[in-house]
Design a protein around this nucleic acid. Sequence first.
DNA 1: GCCGGAGTTTGAGTAAACGCAAATCCTGAT
DNA 2: ATCAGGATTTGCGTTTACTCAAACTCCGGC
Lengths: 232, 232
Amino acid sequence: MAALDRSLIAGLGPFAGLAPADLDEVLQPARAMRFAKDATVFEQDGEARSFFLLLDGYVRVVRITPDGEQVIVRYIKDGELFGIAAAIGRTTYPANAVCAVDCVVLAWPNERWSDLVERFPSFARNTYQTIGSRLQETHDRMMEMSTEQVTQRVAHAVLRLAHQTGRKTAEGVEIDFPISRQDIAEMTGTTLHTVSRLLSAWEERGIVRSGRQKVIVSDPHRLMLIAENRGS
Amino acid sequence: MAALDRSLIAGLGPFAGLAPADLDEVLQPARAMRFAKDATVFEQDGEARSFFLLLDGYVRVVRITPDGEQVIVRYIKDGELFGIAAAIGRTTYPANAVCAVDCVVLAWPNERWSDLVERFPSFARNTYQTIGSRLQETHDRMMEMSTEQVTQRVAHAVLRLAHQTGRKTAEGVEIDFPISRQDIAEMTGTTLHTVSRLLSAWEERGIVRSGRQKVIVSDPHRLMLIAENRGS
DNA sequence: GCCGGAGTTTGAGTAAACGCAAATCCTGAT
DNA sequence: ATCAGGATTTGCGTTTACTCAAACTCCGGC
């Protein structure tokens, strides 16, 4: 197997500030993998053998409730670490990771985690900061779930996706991967029917354009007003 | 000011496995503080100057939404760290910390964080594990908020409190600090009215005993069935 | 012992969103 | 080009839990 090129990870958040030689060392135990759309990178409650970096694509992190309902925890985009159970002392994965599109992934064996953290303090810092902001984000969503009604939650979710993974098009900001009404429902704790009704209403008013597994935000400002319960 | 005695923190989770001399060193920059019930230890968005260990009492961590609603994120009990914004690279506190009863707290200046983490790897490990399990717990609650109805959420919240902070009494497991219907509502995303109705109904059936700022779980098993939507 | 006020209970009406059902629309595969 | 199946839309009845309102209870302080 050919060695991986350091340019793969140079400049990515987790490895910011590492010297070229360091990058080579980091890559040494890593293995590149490809996954087709809808493939599973790891499974909830499965033994955590590796941690991952998403080189290209989008990964959906999904938790399954005891009675089979799905909740989408977050979407991972390229350049982000995921499956870092090791970092927080877990031995199993807390959720499923499913590819929203074809993906390219680097995987490190979990035993390397402590090496990396010890040898590269900036890597440790970056990573724990990432975990911190994910904790923060989860709290934000919990607050939304507690205090907002469905309309606002869906508006917030769509805005967040457009902001984090949006791609500018002629018609507005398009969410960069296929996303169904069902997916949005699983992010916001509602049903696909309600999401459909909301998107239809917004489309009527020129705030979004949407179609099969596609959402384009054409008027972010008005959607923001809806999210904050200031617009009608 | 007299030096703090190492027995204060010996054996506590975060400092498990440290030698007596280490404990003295850890305590050296710490300052003990007392807070009366309802006093605020730190405020949301306030500059994070210190991190804290709760020596005695209970602390409520509360986030305030832009329009003034409160959401209780968690309760801290004695022996736990809190306000550890530094650990995850934040410079402000993400929430309010309010004493549920009179409290005794140790405070360290934030600058000491990196010292501690570097000098005492077991401290770092323990702490990041704590953050991990809080992230986990927050995810669990988010899932509950997404998929369960109010009855189940309230049952889960009460069970969790009884389990984490319960004190055995003749009548059952009593939650160890004053907690109002409003508090439970703010933990579960509902209203005090609904919580009151639920507790009344459960009391009728001998599952709980409750009164002013007081909840005793007398039949945890049946409450568990309700939480899992298996009991009526 | 009395009083004030926070905390709690309970009722009645209402609104938000769900569940169910059926029709329609797309898209990728053959 | 056709077709099958997933995705979406939309209507309608129902349920859950909220809002508003009012009464009540109990504890602590004077």
